[in-house]
Design a protein around this nucleic acid. Structure first.
Length: 512
DNA sequence: TTCCGACAGTGGGGTCGCAAT
DNA sequence: ATTGCGACCCCACTATCGGAA
């Protein structure tokens, strides 16, 4: 199949507003794909490379190459070049990557170049990713979309399911049950603004401490133990503490879901930055483990001793978990039977925060484990802080925010009467706010370099954030975690904005 | 007809590893 | 040694489509 066909379909998908139309366009293409092309075509149209990320980003792509006059590249040729690209390493790698990208881009038409750039940066922006591709695949093969989706979640891979489905038909789906040793997409949570709201919504529920670490899925099959992250990356080699613990548990086959986190000598959790740094260290794992040991803390079990527990209610899965995993390696929790237990749930949240944790997860006791879904059966509750900050500058947006000032540079007052930048945010704005702030900030503009518009520091905005973290980038030595706009405060003058001093005083656990 | 679940988009900061300087 | 880039951790929020109520 010609690569140009894919680029064309991607453009048509982007242009279609209705999701049903996008699905149909993808289905047409999948039906026409030859068996050898399927493992390539499917991920491409889901906006990903079958090779995963291959070391090419905006920098390499910024070197322009004139497009080819007509379409000639085949899907197989593109795939071969990208495989070659992914294997490049060692001295001279940058030049070699540039050479291969140049060869690829030089053989591509303008439209193919656009699609390739999207694939390589992971930003195809066609309004369709995995979920729509799954629908398209179901339509192309006549399979039940819900069953295809479930197979993809359990296989942890769209192209694996696609290949089997297109080769063998809907019967192939039976094969993709939960298999110990093969990672499953983890169940995700939505947010709730308070414990009371969460408990009222879910009824009988567990309230569990939410640890600020790295999500892990641990598989053991006899002596074979594997540890995977939320995106199913294999980090087994970096987690010797976790594999050792998994081998000591009293079952030789299981799949556990949990979090790894590092505790300090005082028993309190280390900062997310410290845990993440440890989990990211791979050159000298023994040394890193000596300095920052991590502990797994489990909250769910998906399989044990040959039994698949996914469809059991959480209450029953947790009973299995308690049998398998001893107390200190399980997340602390309390159970709320309904609204009458809200006070107890709130007490548990306060206690959890006092222990230095992030917040709580509220989970419906009746809910099955919905792999890969961000369902409403799990709700996270974290305390939210707010500040009144001053807009120092704004950046021009991209995609649907093109032509709008989007990303705000936020400043707090300093002792000398100036402002110290604390970070940026693009979150929380409605379209109306985007339009309003673009107009207002242009009135305040003092400089526009085409990327950043600097403004007179006069506009006050209320910002919500989850906490402070250390920063080497910003002048105060700290930055806001997950900053988002709540509302503009036109009733406030910049002299009334919050100060760096007050911010640091409110977060004594973080020192710049 | 209205409501709501699921998705995609729009990007944020930090850390590590690697290659280039 | 330092710097820049890319990958991958953590993530919030809004708009939109389309099925459910």
């Amino acid at each position: 199949m010609l690569f140009a066909r894919l680029a064309q379909v991607s453009r048509d998908v982007a242009a279609a507003a209705a999701r049903s139309r996008k699905t149909e366009l993808l289905a047409e293409l999948f039906r026409d794909a030859a068996a050898d092309d399927v493992p390539i075509v499917i991920p491409y149209l889901a906006g990903r490379l079958p090779q995963g990320r291959i070391g090419v980003g905006w920098r390499v792509l910024s070197r322009a190459v004139p497009p080819a006059a007509g379409p000639a590249l085949t899907v197989q040729e593109v795939d071969a070049l990208l495989t070659e690209l992914g294997a490049v390493s060692g001295p001279g790698a940058q030049a070699e990557r540039t050479r291969i990208v140049g060869a690829l881009m030089g053989a591509a038409t303008e439209e193919e170049q656009r699609f390739l750039r999207g694939l390589l940066t992971g930003e195809v922006r066609q309004g369709a990713l995995d979920a729509v591709a799954v629908e398209g695949l179901a339509r192309a093969t006549g399979a039940d979309p819900a069953r295809v989706r479930r197979a993809v979640m359990l296989a942890g891979s769209l192209q694996t399911v696609a290949r089997a489905l297109l080769a063998e038909g809907p019967g192939a789906l039976e094969r993709f049950g939960l298999t110990v040793g093969r990672p499953v997409l983890p169940m995700l949570a939505q947010s709730a603004s308070s414990v009371a709201e969460a408990v009222r919504k879910l009824g009988a529920c567990a309230v569990e401490e939410k640890l600020d670490g790295i999500r892990v899925q641990v598989h053991r099959d006899g002596d074979a133990v594997r540890v995977h992250t939320r995106t199913l990356d294999d980090i087994t080699d970096r987690m010797p503490e976790v594999t050792a613990i998994a081998r000591e548990l009293a079952a030789d086959q299981f799949v556990l879901d949990g979090e790894v986190i590092s505790f300090g000598a005082d028993g309190r959790p280390r900062s997310f930055q410290e845990t993440a740094g440890r989990v990211g260290s791979r050159t000298d794992v023994a040394k890193a483990a000596g300095q920052v040991p991590v502990s797994p803390v489990f909250f769910d079990v998906l399989a044990v001793a040959g039994r698949d527990l996914l469809d059991l209610p959480f209450a029953e899965r947790h009973a299995e978990l308690a049998r398998l995993v001893p107390e200190p390696m399980r997340v602390r929790r309390t159970v709320a039977r309904g609204p009458k237990d809200i006070a107890e749930a709130e007490r548990f949240l306060a206690e959890t925060l006092a222990r230095g944790h992030e917040g709580v997860m509220v989970k419906a006791l009746a809910a099955p484990y919905s792999a890969g879904r961000r369902g409403a059966a799990w709700l996270k509750v974290k305390p939210v802080h707010t500040l009144d900050l001053v807009v120092l500058a704004a950046e021009w947006g991209h995609g649907r925010r093109t032509g709008k000032l989007s990303n705000l540079h936020l400043g707090a007052r300093t002792a000398d009467g100036g402002f110290a930048m604390l970070g940026k945010t693009f979150k929380g704005m409605t379209d109306v706010m985007l339009a309003w702030q673009t107009k207002r900030l242009r009135e305040l503009a003092v400089e526009d370099d085409g990327w950043v518009v600097r403004v007179r520091p006069e506009l006050v905005v209320e910002i919500a954030y989850d906490g402070l973290q250390r920063s080497s980038r910003y002048p105060a030595g700290v930055t806001l975690r997950f900053a988002r706009v709540v509302r503009y405060r036109e009733d406030k003058r910049p002299e009334e904005a919050d100060t760096v001093e007050a911010l640091l005083a409110a977060h004594p656990e973080v020192t710049p």
